[in-house]
Amino acid sequence: MIESLLPTRSARAIVGWSIVAAILVLLWVLVDNNYYLRLLISAGIAMIGVIPFGLLMGHMGYMAMGQGGFIGVGAYVVGCLTVQRFEIDIWAALPIAIMVVGALAYAFSFALFRLRGYHFSIGTLALGQLLYLAFDSWEWATGGPHGTSGIPRPAIGEFVFATNSRFLIIVSVFVFLAGFTSWWLARGHVGRALNAIRQDEDLAGARGLDVLRYKQLIFTFAAVWAGLAGGLYGSMQISIDPSSFTIWGSFQYVIYVIIGGAGTLLGPVIGVIFITVLDQLIADVGVWNQMILGALIVITVLFFRGGLWGGIRMLWALALKNRSADRSAVSTQAGAAE
């Protein structure tokens, strides 16, 4: 039925990601409370960074643990350009932030992709830590431990996205763009290449694939979106300091992908929603919430290799099978009655 309404795959992708973005905005109507509204924005910003990151970690199988650093660079470049050292418009600062993060990620990718497996993870972890130290010590650009404050909200003409409800709209638009561009990149030959790299990258090279180029492309793509997420985060928070861009931020991206489902585009979205809701539910139990989260990760890794999204799809397939089994049972009964 979906196929007949939306005949092309790109039409389905556009509609699908629009729905995700629209849900985010519509939830605001339901919550109508500034605390939850900020949670929605945070979740949206996390999605912007983590959907493209899913291509790197899930599709390609490279678990980068330094995304927090790229988020920070995005946030600080915006902070430095809009308030700390210059006073340019945030709409100009965001693209510059993206270019800086992209250039940085591309430059480091040469060294990082000499590493594989957990060596790569450790390498990216070190890069994230290095960037964190830079945020903390390069006072001229970042304001050091005190950070940068007064980062503006974007505006279109007279319309300033100053209130959180307005800001959520911008975030939703970028969630759509992150989802759609990731889908667009992963369909066809890039997706085939990423899957092959995850399965056996030496074999892919021996069969003529320029493995390094695809790795660098995806690493830079994921970093750019993390940088944009960081720029938006800075704008949402108004003031930022190094404590927001630690290893924990990098680690959270990894958790979103594992819990939601690696190797799918919607998995990381589900992961963000699940963790956000869970955080609220177990916020009151103190230290136990970290343990509950840890236990859930272990359970997911052990029993649900496809994460929550994989689980949902499995149940869905089972339900469909049962339904068709019921139907065929009914029709054989009908046949027997005749």
Binding site: D202, A204, G205, A206, R207, G208, D210, L212
Partner: peptide, 8 residues
Amino acid sequence: LPSFKVAR
């Protein structure tokens, strides 16, 4: 050459 160019 890298391996993919050897293959090609």
